[in-house]
């Protein structure tokens, strides 16, 4: 499943909350990827006007209008796994639920012709994803004390194997909220 960011706006517009006097583009082709969590990725891109013009020149208006804007995510391992996301349309920021499982990946964005030719425009750097669960692998000289894991899991009401993705840090998130966010302290009613 793919979720557009709420700032799905035309190329020439600013996102909600985005100050209108910041540059619309920076004159370069950029694809930035960032993990939101182990299974969701944020992608934001911009394509320079000069690149658009070059594509129009190379492909012609008609062929270009038949192309779809595609984000390709590649597993950075031996698997060769790839996930393709259609990001045609006005939004330049997307949230992607990942279908490939890889510790790290990289992406490219470009135009895909109906017959399958892909014109890459921008490429991201490598992105490392967090692991979702405690590692099954351990060093034989450092055999895990499983009861310690179980104790941590119990303290947040979770099973040890789901501990990591269990919002284990709710407690401090609340604390952080209280610092500047003025969220109610527990027990207060205002």
């Amino acid at each position: 499943m793919i979720h557009r960011s709420l700032n799905a706006l035309p190329w020439a517009g600013a996102a909600p909350g985005e100050p209108a006097d910041l540059p619309e583009t920076y004159g370069v082709d950029v694809l930035m990827l960032a993990p939101v969590d182990p299974s969701r990725l944020f992608a934001t891109f911009q394509i320079a006007w000069s690149t658009r013009n070059r594509l129009v020149e190379e492909l012609g208006d008609e062929r270009l209008s038949q192309c779809r804007m595609i984000l390709r995510l590649h597993a950075d391992d031996q698997s060769g796994a790839c996930q393709e996301v259609d990001v045609s349309g006005p939004s330049r920021s997307w949230y992607v639920d990942l279908e490939i499982t890889s510790r790290s990946l990289w992406g490219e964005i470009g135009c895909l012709e109906p017959e399958g030719t892909f014109y890459a425009v921008a490429r991201s750097g490598r992105v490392d994803l967090p692991w979702e669960r405690p590692s099954p692998r351990f060093d034989p000289e450092w055999v895990p004390v499983e009861e310690a894991y179980e104790r941590i899991a119990r303290s947040v009401g979770m099973h040890p194997e789901t501990l990591y993705c269990a919002r284990g840090c709710v407690a401090l998130a609340e604390g952080r909220d209280q610092r500047l966010g003025r969220k109610s302290l527990p027990g207060a009613v205002r």
């Binding site: 967090p130 351990f138 895990p144 310690a148 104790r151 941590i152 990591y164 284990g168 840090c169």
Partner: peptide
């Protein structure tokens, strides 16, 4: 935070302690 240790590779012997 604890989960960064609990999720470390290889699995740490002493969890977060």
């Amino acid at each position: 935070d604890t989960p960064s240790l609990v999720g470390a590779r290889p699995r740490p012997r002493f969890a977060g302690f």
